[in-house]
């Protein structure tokens, strides 16, 4: 096997195969996963939008494909999906910027 790239969309379909080498843990994971995404206090659509935002934060191509489809299936539209990604992006940007206070503190200590 000599793949020239790390990510192949076809591999997403093989996700279930991780149980081949450690079934009890895979079973527990998939059962937990299915339970998490069921309608609860949050709707399935809201959960899919959160998943889409997280997928962009962890930059997982499989998750981005899966939850783009998932969001559309659950009835989300483009505007909602893009807003969800902006939430992820804002937290990412903010989490860098908020360290600016540390930089400022330190700089103030060092300077006259």
């Amino acid at each position: 096997m000599s793949k020239k790239h790390y990510f192949d969309p076809e591999d997403l379909k093989k996700f279930g195969n991780i149980g081949e080498w450690q079934k009890p843990l895979a079973d527990k994971f998939f059962s937990y996963y299915a339970e998490v995404f069921k309608e609860g206090a949050l709707s399935e659509r809201e959960k899919a939008l959160i998943a889409l935002a997280v997928a962009h934060t962890v930059q997982c191509p499989y998750c981005i494909d899966a939850y783009t489809s998932g969001c559309l299936e659950k009835g989300a539209d483009e505007e909602q999906m893009m807003e969800a990604i902006h939430v992820a992006a804002a937290i990412r940007a903010g989490s860098s910027l908020v360290y600016g206070t540390q930089m400022m503190n330190h700089a103030k200590n060092l300077t006259m």
Binding site: E39, S43, E44, R45, S69, K74, G75
Partner: peptide, 13 residues
Amino acid sequence: FLPGNQASLEAEF
């Protein structure tokens, strides 16, 4: 793509 859960879609609509 396939339609999602009918009851959830109805609630959101």
